[in-house]
Design a protein around this nucleic acid. Structure first.
Lengths: 234, 234
DNA sequence: CGAGCGTTTGAAATCGGTCAACAGCAGTGG
DNA sequence: CCACTGCTGTTGACCGATTTCAAACGCTCG
């Protein structure tokens, strides 16, 4: 805590390798240090933004995890994604006036706030930053599209396997243990994400446990046979 | 046909109001006329790009219609969207090396080809074009997210109603008849798009017909009660 | 320890899937 | 012009995965 302002600097941040482009020059890094205008802590259950909020910022996760969801007037909702440190939130507000979704912390978390207008401004001088924005948006699009395939074409068991494999891969990319970790979301949230009921989630978990592909106790998960899960996921 | 090169110019194109930003200055329009490097005609069933193709261009539909789809190794696939004139294709290739999807013409069609690098270059000088890119990408993201809600949370009947309402609205925006038109896709393709089987599509269509909400004969569709469809869609 | 929530498990119901037969239309070729 | 063929779409009957309903279990926390 000896130098608080330091902590706002991307150039000093261990997560920068995940949310910023690689290969920035020292000068560029200095410019980019002005990108993050704010850091925000959120308690479990708190939302960074709600469906319909005016959108000005995007957010990168420093630690913790989030769900993004979209709601229907009648109360039904769909969880669109779970998000790990280094991933971006609020992308559905880029290029539009309002967020179409909301982002809620699944545990005590912290995000870096970047005004999108700032991002655009810096991008004019730093080509790799402009490229990076497209990369981030592309990631969002292709993710959603893969999720569409999952929801539209797979069985409950295949969906769960997909979910595990995807989580495992993303954790792996971030240097987190890819085969043993605590889930930050409940069964109901997993169900919403995969378009199945909570009881089905539970049953599939039991089935996968019996088959010794996973081991799960409460939220603590061990992936015993990634290979097999991968095969089920298709 | 008296002036063929003219026809490549966006400034003369009736679709420009749908694929280009509004309020361009005459000078800007002149610059933008260099955007479209090529026009391509496609027969029914032909693909503009395939999953895995190197991505350099985005496409705007001049006439006709397309489906975009993503395929699994085992042959299963998911149709991600149906696309009308004025809409863009190939957005999942922006910011990445390869297209993750393929786009196939549902009828004889024509697209304008724009190298994305050109688009970026012009965007540096024309701020509204840069904004427009974000707008287009945003549209893609929010579309996919709404589709996720549809696939994950709605019943077969609700899905079909959604499909009709969405088609109707988009046709309306483009000055096409919103309540009576020919479908360019088959039942199987509708099923894939909505994550249901072809027989279910057929049954729901019969049910909606009996209820006098629609009238359908082969591919010719009349939406008799948009209000009610909207209510079903949620 | 007890309340309350989240989760698991069982049994019954249902929606949608699968299988199968058939109808309608288009295109082919005699 | 009319079988013949093939493709697409419809309909029915049955089946099965998933949902729904219900009850019990087991954490967690006051």
């Amino acid at each position: 805590m000896k130098n608080l302002p330091q902590q706002n600097k991307c150039s000093q941040c261990v997560m920068a390798q995940f949310c910023l482009p690689l290969g920035l020059s020292p000068q560029e890094f200095i410019a980019i240090d002005q990108l993050v205008t704010e850091k925000v802590h959120l308690a479990k259950g708190e939302a960074i933004y709600h469906q319909g909020d005016t959108s000005q910022s995007i957010f990168s996760i420093r630690h913790g995890s989030f769900k993004t969801e979209i709601s229907l007037a009648d109360g039904r909702g769909q969880i669109l994604g779970f998000h790990l440190p280094g991933e971006f939130l609020g992308l559905d507000g880029v290029g539009s006036k309002q967020y179409q979704t909301q982002a809620v912390a699944l545990e005590p978390s912290e995000v870096c706030v970047m005004k999108f207008s700032q991002f655009e401004k810096f991008a004019l001088d730093i080509p790799s930053l402009q490229t990076h924005i497209y990369h981030i948006l592309n990631h969002e699009i292709t993710n959603d599209q893969k999720h569409l395939l999952t929801l539209g074409s797979l069985s409950a068991e295949e969906k769960m396997a997909c979910f595990f494999v995807n989580l495992s891969e993303r954790r792996s990319q971030r240097g987190l243990n890819p085969t043993e970790f605590d889930l930050s979301m409940g069964r109901e949230e997993i169900g919403s994400f995969l378009g199945i009921q909570i009881e089905t989630v539970s049953r599939v978990l039991s089935k996968l446990s019996e088959a010794r592909l996973i081991q799960i106790k409460q939220k603590h998960l061990k992936l015993l046979d990634l290979e097999a899960l991968h095969k089920i996921a298709g």
